[in-house]
Protein backbone atom coordinates (compact mmCIF):
# COMPACT_ATOMS: atom_id res chain seq x y z
CA UNK A 1 0.00 0.00 0.00
CA UNK A 2 1.36 3.40 -0.97
CA UNK A 3 0.33 6.69 0.59
CA UNK A 4 0.83 10.03 -1.09
CA UNK A 5 -0.12 13.46 0.15
CA UNK A 6 -1.04 16.93 -1.00
CA UNK A 7 -1.21 20.05 1.11
CA UNK A 8 -3.78 22.85 0.96
CA UNK A 9 -2.63 26.13 2.42
CA UNK A 10 -3.59 29.81 2.31
CA UNK A 11 -4.61 32.71 4.52
CA UNK A 12 -7.23 32.71 7.22
CA UNK A 13 -10.70 31.78 6.01
CA UNK A 14 -9.69 31.18 2.39
CA UNK A 15 -11.75 27.98 2.29
CA UNK A 16 -9.10 25.32 3.03
CA UNK A 17 -11.34 23.20 5.26
CA UNK A 18 -14.20 23.53 2.78
CA UNK A 19 -11.98 22.51 -0.13
CA UNK A 20 -10.86 19.31 1.60
CA UNK A 21 -14.37 18.57 2.85
CA UNK A 22 -15.73 18.77 -0.71
CA UNK A 23 -13.38 16.11 -2.07
CA UNK A 24 -12.65 13.86 0.92
CA UNK A 25 -14.36 10.48 1.23
CA UNK A 26 -14.14 10.65 5.02
CA UNK A 27 -15.36 13.41 7.27
CA UNK A 28 -12.57 15.92 7.47
CA UNK A 29 -10.65 15.22 10.62
CA UNK A 30 -10.11 18.72 11.70
CA UNK A 31 -9.40 20.61 14.82
CA UNK A 32 -11.84 23.46 14.60
CA UNK A 33 -12.37 25.90 17.39
CA UNK A 34 -15.15 28.40 17.71
CA UNK A 35 -14.01 31.92 17.04
CA UNK A 36 -14.71 34.03 20.09
CA UNK A 37 -15.13 37.24 18.08
CA UNK A 38 -15.69 36.31 14.46
CA UNK A 39 -14.70 39.12 12.07
CA UNK A 40 -17.10 37.58 9.60
CA UNK A 41 -20.53 36.63 10.95
CA UNK A 42 -20.74 33.59 8.65
CA UNK A 43 -17.47 32.27 9.95
CA UNK A 44 -17.89 30.75 13.37
CA UNK A 45 -14.97 28.29 13.36
CA UNK A 46 -11.30 28.31 12.55
CA UNK A 47 -8.82 25.49 12.13
CA UNK A 48 -6.28 25.41 14.95
CA UNK A 49 -4.04 22.49 14.05
CA UNK A 50 -4.69 20.95 10.66
CA UNK A 51 -7.29 19.36 8.47
CA UNK A 52 -7.01 15.94 7.10
CA UNK A 53 -8.98 14.28 4.28
CA UNK A 54 -8.62 11.05 2.32
CA UNK A 55 -9.26 9.75 -1.17
CA UNK A 56 -8.77 6.08 -2.06
CA UNK A 57 -7.29 5.87 -5.53
CA UNK A 58 -7.19 2.09 -5.97
CA UNK A 59 -6.36 -1.08 -4.06
CA UNK A 60 -2.90 0.04 -3.20
CA UNK A 61 -2.80 3.83 -3.44
CA UNK A 62 -4.31 6.39 -1.07
CA UNK A 63 -4.17 10.16 -1.36
CA UNK A 64 -4.20 12.16 1.85
CA UNK A 65 -5.00 15.85 1.72
CA UNK A 66 -3.77 18.03 4.56
CA UNK A 67 -4.87 21.56 5.28
CA UNK A 68 -2.72 24.02 7.18
CA UNK A 69 -4.34 26.18 9.83
CA UNK A 70 -5.00 29.82 9.03
CA UNK A 71 -4.45 32.54 11.62
CA UNK A 72 -0.74 33.10 10.94
CA UNK A 73 0.49 29.91 12.49
CA UNK A 74 1.59 29.04 9.04
CA UNK A 75 5.34 29.62 9.33
CA UNK A 76 6.31 26.64 11.38
CA UNK A 77 3.57 24.30 10.21
CA UNK A 78 4.17 24.54 6.49
CA UNK A 79 7.67 23.10 6.59
CA UNK A 80 6.51 20.07 8.47
CA UNK A 81 3.50 19.60 6.25
CA UNK A 82 5.23 20.27 2.94
CA UNK A 83 8.05 17.82 3.52
CA UNK A 84 7.46 14.94 1.17
CA UNK A 85 4.31 16.29 -0.42
CA UNK A 86 3.40 15.72 -4.07
CA UNK A 87 2.24 19.26 -4.47
CA UNK A 88 0.60 22.25 -2.87
CA UNK A 89 -2.61 24.14 -3.40
CA UNK A 90 -2.42 27.76 -2.26
CA UNK A 91 -5.97 29.00 -1.76
CA UNK A 92 -6.76 32.71 -1.91
CA UNK A 93 -9.92 34.40 -0.72
CA UNK A 94 -10.83 36.37 -3.86
CA UNK A 95 -13.10 38.76 -1.99
CA UNK A 96 -10.76 39.65 0.86
CA UNK A 97 -7.94 42.02 -0.14
CA UNK A 98 -7.12 42.26 3.57
CA UNK A 99 -5.67 38.74 3.27
CA UNK A 100 -3.50 39.49 0.22
CA UNK A 101 -0.51 40.55 2.28
CA UNK A 102 -0.48 37.26 4.11
CA UNK A 103 -1.02 35.43 0.82
CA UNK A 104 2.02 37.14 -0.63
CA UNK A 105 4.14 36.13 2.34
CA UNK A 106 3.11 32.53 1.83
CA UNK A 107 3.85 32.68 -1.89
CA UNK A 108 7.22 34.34 -1.32
CA UNK A 109 8.17 31.62 1.11
CA UNK A 110 7.37 28.96 -1.47
CA UNK A 111 9.26 30.70 -4.21
CA UNK A 112 12.33 30.96 -2.03
CA UNK A 113 12.32 27.65 -0.26
CA UNK A 114 10.05 25.04 -1.71
CA UNK A 115 10.98 22.61 -4.44
CA UNK A 116 7.39 21.50 -4.53
CA UNK A 117 5.05 21.98 -7.49
CA UNK A 118 2.12 24.22 -6.63
CA UNK A 119 -0.92 25.97 -8.07
CA UNK A 120 -2.62 29.11 -6.80
CA UNK A 121 -6.39 29.07 -6.50
CA UNK A 122 -8.70 32.09 -6.62
CA UNK A 123 -11.42 30.70 -4.37
CA UNK A 124 -14.97 32.01 -3.80
CA UNK A 125 -15.43 32.99 -7.43
CA UNK A 126 -19.18 32.63 -6.90
CA UNK A 127 -19.29 35.73 -4.71
CA UNK A 128 -20.05 39.16 -6.20
CA UNK A 129 -16.99 41.38 -6.53
CA UNK A 130 -14.60 38.45 -6.45
CA UNK A 131 -11.21 39.49 -7.86
CA UNK A 132 -10.52 37.55 -11.06
CA UNK A 133 -7.61 35.09 -11.26
CA UNK A 134 -5.78 37.41 -13.64
CA UNK A 135 -6.16 40.42 -11.35
CA UNK A 136 -4.94 38.33 -8.43
CA UNK A 137 -1.92 37.28 -10.45
CA UNK A 138 -0.91 40.90 -10.90
CA UNK A 139 -1.88 41.97 -7.38
CA UNK A 140 0.15 39.20 -5.77
CA UNK A 141 2.94 39.18 -8.38
CA UNK A 142 2.50 35.55 -9.22
CA UNK A 143 4.95 34.50 -11.94
CA UNK A 144 3.55 33.49 -15.30
CA UNK A 145 4.84 29.96 -14.92
CA UNK A 146 2.49 29.36 -11.98
CA UNK A 147 -1.17 28.55 -12.67
CA UNK A 148 -3.82 30.75 -11.04
CA UNK A 149 -7.10 28.83 -11.20
CA UNK A 150 -10.67 29.97 -10.53
CA UNK A 151 -12.52 27.89 -7.93
CA UNK A 152 -15.64 27.54 -5.81
CA UNK A 153 -14.60 25.23 -2.97
CA UNK A 154 -18.17 24.18 -2.25
CA UNK A 155 -18.46 22.78 -5.80
CA UNK A 156 -17.04 19.32 -6.34
CA UNK A 157 -16.34 19.73 -10.07
CA UNK A 158 -14.42 22.90 -9.35
CA UNK A 159 -12.27 21.24 -6.67
CA UNK A 160 -11.66 18.25 -8.95
CA UNK A 161 -10.43 20.57 -11.69
CA UNK A 162 -7.95 22.22 -9.32
CA UNK A 163 -6.55 18.86 -8.22
CA UNK A 164 -6.24 17.75 -11.85
CA UNK A 165 -4.44 20.95 -12.78
CA UNK A 166 -2.02 20.40 -9.90
CA UNK A 167 -1.40 16.83 -11.08
CA UNK A 168 -0.74 18.03 -14.64
CA UNK A 169 1.73 20.53 -13.19
CA UNK A 170 3.45 17.73 -11.31
CA UNK A 171 3.70 15.70 -14.53
CA UNK A 172 5.20 18.70 -16.33
CA UNK A 173 7.76 19.18 -13.56
CA UNK A 174 8.79 15.52 -14.05
CA UNK A 175 9.33 16.18 -17.76
CA UNK A 176 11.53 19.11 -16.81
CA UNK A 177 13.66 16.97 -14.50
CA UNK A 178 14.33 14.15 -16.90
Amino acid sequence: MQNVKMVVTGPFSAGKTQFIHTISEIDVVSTERRLSHPADPDKSQTTVAMDFGRLTIDDDLILYIFGTPGQRRFDFMWRILSQGTLGLVVLLDSVRPDTFREAREILNTFQTYADVPYVVVANKQDLPDAWSPEDLRVALRIPRAIKVLPCVATDRESVKEVLLQLLYTILESMDGDS
Binding site: G87, Y113, D115
Partner: peptide, 16 residues
Protein backbone atom coordinates in the same frame (compact mmCIF):
# COMPACT_ATOMS: atom_id res chain seq x y z
CA UNK B 1 14.87 24.19 0.76
CA UNK B 2 12.05 21.82 1.38
CA UNK B 3 11.87 18.85 -0.93
CA UNK B 4 8.67 17.45 -2.26
CA UNK B 5 7.92 13.83 -2.82
CA UNK B 6 9.22 12.48 -6.15
CA UNK B 7 6.66 9.84 -7.06
CA UNK B 8 6.67 7.78 -10.20
CA UNK B 9 4.79 8.94 -13.26
CA UNK B 10 2.56 5.91 -12.86
CA UNK B 11 1.32 7.15 -9.46
CA UNK B 12 0.39 10.53 -10.90
CA UNK B 13 -1.50 9.06 -13.85
CA UNK B 14 -3.45 6.80 -11.49
CA UNK B 15 -4.39 9.83 -9.42
CA UNK B 16 -5.47 11.68 -12.54
Amino acid sequence: RVRGQRPSRNVITRLI
